[in-house]
Computed example of a mutant assay.
Amino acid sequence: MRRLSTVELMLLTTIGLWSLNLTVSRYILTHGFQPLAYAAGRYGLAVVVIVALALTLERSVRIESRDLGLVAAAAALVYVNQIGFVYALEKSSASVLGLILGATPIFAALAGLVLRTESLPPRFWAGALLSFGGVALVALGSGGTLSGDLGGVLLGVLTAATWAGYSMLVVPLMRRYSATRISGTVLAVAWVPIALTAAPQLSDQDWGLGWEVWVLFLFATLGPLVLTNELWFRSLDRIGPARATLAANLQPFLASAIAVVLLSESLGPLELAGGVLIAAGIFAARRRGVSAPPSE
């Protein structure tokens, strides 16, 4: 039996933590934490940890002036991603959001097309249509009608699209800086607008949430955010975002299964059919492959 490579282990660890994070964050948001207060607190703690690591390991978090535009663009995508993420979890379920995030590889390829780092064959477009059809089925199944839970589904799509774009933008930065330095810088810049947007909720937040919520908050910060950022960046550097995001095909079903077991959520026939279509679309798009941007 073939042993898993280092990059495969990093991706599997990342995907496992991300999958569990949907359930953990959903629990936190339904047990007293307001969405923006959660995002601001979580990212604030993550920035402190990652910047401390960068300063300890490298003695600097300096980014060259020529790369500040990329850092700002990546931080803007992280900001939108987190707003979409917390409100998608508030309005929808962890299992539904997990299925929708399965479309991330399609968005990564489309982002590569815009940035001219991807060459997309005709088969890709057939796969994209299948995946987006699956998202539509998930929307119908989760709300009964397109208007029922459409807000949460659209925010889930926004979360997938912004994460894919973010993954594409950081590839050039990986050629010049470490994963720790990029994470510390990008997340620090992104935290500022997150905190400003969250100010009303932070001032109104009841912080007496119980030890269980705070333990899960620490896990959601140190595992699915701090550790996975490091592992994800290193994976991107080795195999490129197109192949790295394709490896995330396992996440929607793993995340949904965890949410069903731990949160007693349920998935209807339409939602399950949508998940299958999303996976089939990604498989169809992958068969002939899309070219990954070069990594050094």
Score class of each variant (00 low, 15 high):
Met1Leu: 14
Met1Trp: 14
Met1Phe: 12
Leu4Thr: 10
Ser5Ile: 07
Thr6Leu: 09
Glu8Cys: 08
Met10Gly: 00
Met10Glu: 14
Leu12Ile: 15
Thr14Glu: 06
Thr14Ile: 04
Gly16His: 02
Trp18Gln: 06
Leu20Gln: 01
Asn21Ile: 05
His31Cys: 06
Ala39Cys: 12
Ala40Ser: 15
Gly41Asn: 07
Ala46Asn: 15
Ala46Asp: 14
Val49Lys: 10
Leu55Gln: 15
Leu57Met: 15
Arg62His: 12
Glu64Pro: 01
Leu68Trp: 15
Leu70Gln: 14
Ala72Lys: 12
Ala75Tyr: 13
Gln82Tyr: 13
Gln82Phe: 07
Ile83Val: 12
Gly84Glu: 05
Leu89Ser: 01
Glu90Ala: 03
Ser95Thr: 10
Thr104His: 01
Phe107Val: 08
Ala108Cys: 01
Ala108Ile: 02
Ala109Cys: 05
Ala111Tyr: 08
Ala111Gly: 07
Leu113Ala: 05
Pro122Glu: 11
Phe124Asp: 02
Ala126Tyr: 07
Gly133Lys: 05
Val135Gly: 06
Val135Phe: 04
Ala139Tyr: 04
Gly141Lys: 02
Gly141Asp: 07
Gly151Pro: 00
Leu154Asn: 05
Leu158Met: 15
Ala161Trp: 05
Ala161Tyr: 03
Thr162Trp: 15
Pro172Ile: 08
Pro172Tyr: 06
Arg176Ser: 11
Ala179Pro: 09
Gly184Ser: 09
Gly184Ile: 03
Thr185Glu: 11
Leu187Asp: 04
Ala188Pro: 13
Ala195Gly: 08
Ala198Tyr: 00
Ala198Val: 01
Asp206Cys: 01
Gly208Tyr: 14
Gly208Trp: 15
Leu209Met: 13
Gly210Leu: 10
Trp211Leu: 12
Trp214Ala: 04
Phe217Met: 11
Leu218Ser: 12
Ala220Met: 09
Thr221Cys: 11
Thr221Pro: 08
Leu225Ala: 01
Leu225Gly: 05
Glu230Asp: 10
Phe233Asn: 02
Arg234Glu: 14
Ser235Trp: 10
Asp237Val: 03
Ile239Glu: 04
Ile239Trp: 09
Ala244Val: 08
Ala248Cys: 12
Asn249Leu: 11
Gln251Leu: 10
Val261Asn: 13
Ser264Ala: 12
Gly268Gln: 04
Gly268Ile: 04
Gly268Asp: 14
Leu272Ser: 06
Ala280Ser: 11
Ile282Phe: 03
Ile282Tyr: 04
Ile282Val: 14
Ala284Ile: 11
Ala284Phe: 12
Ala285Phe: 06
Ala285Thr: 05
Arg287Met: 08
Arg287Ile: 04
Val290Thr: 06
Ser291Cys: 06
Pro293Gly: 05
Glu296Asn: 06
